[in-house]
Simulated scan of single mutants.
Amino acid sequence: MGSGLRQQTRPPRRRSPGQGLARLHAQRAGHTASPRGVNPAGHDQQVILLQQVCTAAGLDPRGALRLPGRANAVYQLPHANAVARLRQTHNSPEWDRRMSASVQVTHWLAEQGYPAVRPLDAVAQPVTVDGWTATFWRYEAPDGDVTSAHVTDLARLLRRLHTLPTPPIELPATDPLGSLPNDLHQHPEALTRQQRDWLHRRCADISAAYPTAAMPPELDHGLIHGDAHTGNLIAARGGFVFCDWDSVSYGPRAQDLIPSLYGVVRLGSPRTSWLEMCSAYGIDPDLEHHPGMRLLHQAREIRALAAYIRAAAGSVAAKSELDKRMRTLMTGEDAIWHAPQGFR
């Protein structure tokens, strides 16, 4: 390609553990990793967008590698020792504020000595081009063998995060539905009219109940990550580092434990993972039955549909899983869902 972005046309040959770890960390610096490795740069629109945002930021996009993602197009920038994340925000002022907050909060977390990915200091960001918003992050150099984070690693980092003071930053309020309402509006073709109507009603019910919902006192409001799961932990030098701060906000700390519970209820994680999570964090696992926790879990179930709605037009696997999830939600089935590669 004339863009200077490398493409892979065949599966990469087996690499040494150290090379595999470097690739894994590049994938996860700012987003969920895919164990299958780097994908081709491929999508022409995003290639052009990457060049535009890098030019605006004064960064060199040559040799960029397109990495797997859901909400974001994620690229490693080897000449800048950085990772670029592009999110389609449709010129939404609300999402621009949230992306800006992710940069400001991670700067502040670095000052607190908290292990979070760090934004590039020399770049004025976020950068917005044609309805896409980009942020730029330091590449996290790996060290040692590839290791997957355990729920206890997540619990300890969350406990540490939740004991920090409120940062001197205007935090956005937590939205338990994330980008789902906007994605429904932008991609109505992903669902049938019956499915859309049901999902709009469920969104309305949760949005109406959330503002006055009582939360467990030990998990009440404060600074939260907003999308806390083990896939957002990077095994870097010195320990695990938290990435993907697009949903950082002020809200119920219970929100940060919900993805682990969701993993048990909907994704087939063993029950012991929830028990270990709660033990490491220091709460009673029976809090899952608290009405506030149940409401947040219902929100998580439909919030997780957003990535599938965005991808449905271009992915048979995403469309199939979206239809399955909608069917089980609409009929009330307690089914285990099976996320395709790169999804949750």
Score class of each variant (00 low, 15 high):
Leu5Ile: 05
Gln8Leu: 14
Arg10Lys: 10
Arg10Phe: 10
Arg13Met: 08
Arg15Tyr: 06
Ser16Asn: 03
Gly20Pro: 03
Ala26Glu: 15
Ala33Val: 10
Pro35Ile: 03
Gly37Glu: 06
Val47Thr: 12
Leu59Arg: 00
Asp60Gln: 08
Arg62Ile: 08
Pro68Phe: 03
Asn72Pro: 08
Pro78Arg: 01
His79Arg: 15
His79Tyr: 11
Arg85Gln: 09
Arg98Asn: 12
Met99Pro: 10
Ala101Ile: 07
Ala101Leu: 08
Leu109Phe: 02
Ala116His: 00
Leu120Ala: 04
Leu120Ile: 07
Asp121Leu: 13
Asp121Ala: 15
Gln125Gly: 13
Trp132Asp: 09
Tyr139Cys: 12
Gly144Asp: 09
Asp145Glu: 14
Asp145Cys: 06
Ser148Asp: 12
Ala149Leu: 05
His150Thr: 12
His150Leu: 12
Val151Ile: 04
Val151Glu: 02
Thr152Tyr: 03
Ala155Tyr: 08
Leu157Ala: 11
Leu157Gly: 15
Leu158Asn: 01
Thr163Leu: 13
Thr163Ala: 15
Pro165Ser: 07
Thr166Asp: 13
Thr166Asn: 06
Leu180Lys: 01
Asn182Val: 09
Gln195Asn: 02
Leu199Pro: 05
Arg201Val: 14
Arg202Asn: 07
Asp205Ala: 15
Thr212Glu: 14
Gly222Tyr: 00
Asp227Val: 02
Thr230Met: 05
Asn232Ser: 05
Asn232Pro: 00
Gly239Phe: 03
Phe242Val: 14
Ser247Cys: 10
Gln255Val: 10
Asp256Thr: 06
Leu257Asn: 01
Pro259Lys: 00
Ser260Val: 15
Arg266Thr: 04
Arg266Asp: 09
Arg266His: 13
Gly268Val: 06
Ser269Lys: 13
Ser269Val: 06
Pro270Lys: 02
Met277Gly: 02
Gly292Gln: 03
His297Val: 08
Glu301Trp: 03
Glu301Thr: 09
Ala304Ser: 12
Ile309Ala: 04
Ser315Pro: 09
Val316Glu: 12
Ala317Asp: 15
Glu321Asn: 12
Lys324Phe: 12
Thr331Asp: 13
His338Lys: 06
His338Asn: 06
Gln341Trp: 07
Gln341Ile: 11
Phe343Asn: 02
